[in-house]
Amino acid sequence: MEIEKTLSALSKECPDSILKRADRHGMPEITVGADSFLKVMETLRGFGFDMLTDVVGIDRMPRMPRFDVVYLLMSMEDFCRLAITVELVEGQDVPSVSGIWNSANWGEREVFDLLGIGFSGHPDLRRILMWENFEGHPLRKDFPLEGKDFDKPFDTETIKDYF
């Protein structure tokens, strides 16, 4: 699909949703506001972007708003990629797209786990890589590299299982 046509159709469908446009070494990227995000994603799914390749969370700490969540979309018809970025302040939630793409389920869980970004409407928002009662979010830039409790013994009593 022609990315220009798609984007103009998108701005017709959801007016004023595209805040910024950029080109990431050949992959077009658009930045959308958190409030119109879900509608944009639904529209793009309708346009034929049927695979959500990945969900990337980025902590750009000194910047306000602090977080970026990048959704990498791809159309399986002609292998056309598009990145959607949402900028978020700390504590702000993104509407979950796991109802549109199933792959968002784990992708968003990972972003939640490692960066502490909430996803409203997610069916199963739990930690995925770290254990359930781990404190903090490791991929935040203010999380120490050596870990928060690196000199404490590993206490199996406090590890809670899901089941």
């Binding site: 049927d50 695979m51 959500l52 399986m76 199933n102 792959s103």
Partner: peptide
């Protein structure tokens, strides 16, 4: 196919 794509 559709489901496989949807699941990533």
């Amino acid at each position: 196919a559709a489901e496989a794509i949807n699941h990533g």
